[in-house]
Computed example of a mutant assay.
Amino acid sequence: MLQASNQPSEEVEAAVTLAREVAPELEAVIITHYRDEDTLDMMRPGETDLETVRAVNMAVAAELDMEGVEVIVQRADRAAFRRWMHGRDDTPENRRGWIDRARLIRGVAALKALGLEVEEDEDGGEEQPRFGPAPGPIADRLLNAYFKDGDEFRGFVQEILEAERTDVLDLAIRKIGESQGDEGMDELNGAMLEVAEAGAVGPSGWAELVALPVALPSAQVPSAAALTESLFATGYFADTDDVRFLPGWRSPDALAGLTPAAMRRVLMDLAEHGEPRDLPPGDTDDLARHGFGVLIGLQADWSIPTWDQIAAAGGLPDQADIEADGARRRALFQRWRGGAFREHGGCVPLEIIPPSEVGREIADFIEEAGDSPPVAD
């Protein structure tokens, strides 16, 4: 239970009221803790009432935590803030959008950083396993959710993957194979792969794998790093899309052979800035002979609003026009594709998609190309 001192100021009361209004539509929020008046004035020019700002932060955090919203804290850092603002217009919107992505504080530590008193759990017992040792009953529950409720199924698979109960997933696939054959096994495996390639990992709290299949020229495979760097330079990715591609090419066949458990390990390895143990770089000569290679990356979701943004908007910040933004990104991507074809030896990037869709994307591309070589198309 959280305890915050009673603040009579109108600013605090108004902030608590706003927090209560937005809480039902909010999963997480980032609150900035200012250590001194100079830092506050630099980041929020003209504001030097440090005591009120801290009181607002405490009251808002207590209210949102009570409503089940995850409270994340960042300590204001002038050097990191200056680096963020470099190259950006000095606007209030950009100032409020600063997030120190590498040093966020979560959980009890975040609440304590704001000055809140947190009553520790007196139980102190070890967390009990979420699942029993026998995989059969869990697999049956999983299949029941698969046939009845897609959301429940996806949530259940996430829990099983987090518990590293690959035996349950394997058994569920065997069970459905007994009744529906290979086709049923493939469909269930595909549904599990879609879940496994995204999860609650990384500093933002959610990340997903992305893939860019490319039709390769037979003469010379282009540099994977140079290709992705040219894509980043277009402005295709938004600030909230923190995307990092691996430097080497991967084989579509190796990707197609991943199990859901292996796909989750790839996600975890990339989230920890490591090379994926289950998906090593492919041989470029072999990829060129087969005509396709895949670039694999990790995209972290940084769409978490800051409390400063919410307070300035008087509610949740306006969402971008999804349709207009999609059209803009498609135009940028198509322009980049043409440039990539000319500048990287005739390669043809397909689309940025989840890894589980790579095989289907390549098959569609080949079908559209007909009898012509893919690159010629």
Score class of each variant (00 low, 15 high):
residue 276 P to K: 00
residue 228 T to F: 05
residue 184 G to T: 13
residue 205 G to E: 14
residue 248 G to H: 15
residue 202 G to E: 08
residue 268 M to A: 09
residue 276 P to R: 03
residue 244 R to L: 10
residue 178 E to Q: 15
residue 205 G to V: 13
residue 203 P to R: 14
residue 177 G to D: 13
residue 162 E to N: 11
residue 260 P to S: 01
residue 199 G to H: 04
residue 196 A to Y: 07
residue 199 G to Q: 06
residue 178 E to T: 09
residue 245 F to P: 07
residue 154 R to L: 10
residue 157 V to E: 03
residue 176 I to H: 07
residue 179 S to W: 10
residue 197 E to F: 01
residue 184 G to D: 13
residue 195 V to P: 07
residue 163 A to E: 11
residue 199 G to L: 08
residue 234 T to R: 11
residue 275 E to Q: 09
residue 158 Q to G: 02
residue 154 R to W: 04
residue 233 A to L: 12
residue 269 D to K: 02
residue 245 F to G: 05
residue 241 D to T: 06
residue 219 A to W: 04
residue 162 E to D: 14
residue 154 R to I: 10
residue 210 V to T: 14
residue 217 P to V: 06
residue 277 R to S: 12
residue 201 V to G: 00
residue 245 F to Q: 12
residue 244 R to G: 08
residue 228 T to P: 11
residue 214 V to A: 01
residue 222 P to H: 06
residue 160 I to W: 04
residue 267 L to G: 03
residue 199 G to P: 04
residue 226 A to T: 08
residue 199 G to V: 00
residue 216 L to K: 00
residue 217 P to A: 09
residue 168 V to T: 13
residue 267 L to Y: 01
residue 218 S to Q: 09
residue 265 R to Q: 15
residue 184 G to S: 11
residue 269 D to E: 10
residue 224 A to V: 05
residue 198 A to V: 08
residue 205 G to S: 12
residue 178 E to W: 09
residue 234 T to C: 06
residue 270 L to E: 02
residue 212 L to Q: 07
residue 246 L to A: 15
residue 158 Q to M: 02
residue 216 L to W: 02
residue 221 V to I: 11
residue 211 A to K: 04
residue 171 L to I: 13
residue 180 Q to H: 15
residue 159 E to K: 04
residue 186 D to K: 15
residue 223 S to C: 12
residue 162 E to H: 03
residue 173 I to R: 12
residue 210 V to R: 10
residue 227 L to W: 00
residue 267 L to P: 07
residue 180 Q to F: 15
residue 234 T to W: 01
residue 165 R to T: 07
residue 211 A to Y: 00
residue 169 L to G: 06
residue 258 L to K: 04
residue 213 P to I: 00
residue 230 S to G: 15
residue 171 L to C: 07
residue 217 P to F: 01
residue 161 L to F: 05
residue 161 L to S: 05
residue 256 A to S: 12
residue 238 A to K: 13
residue 179 S to L: 13
residue 229 E to H: 10
residue 167 D to H: 14
residue 199 G to E: 08
residue 263 M to H: 11
residue 274 G to N: 06
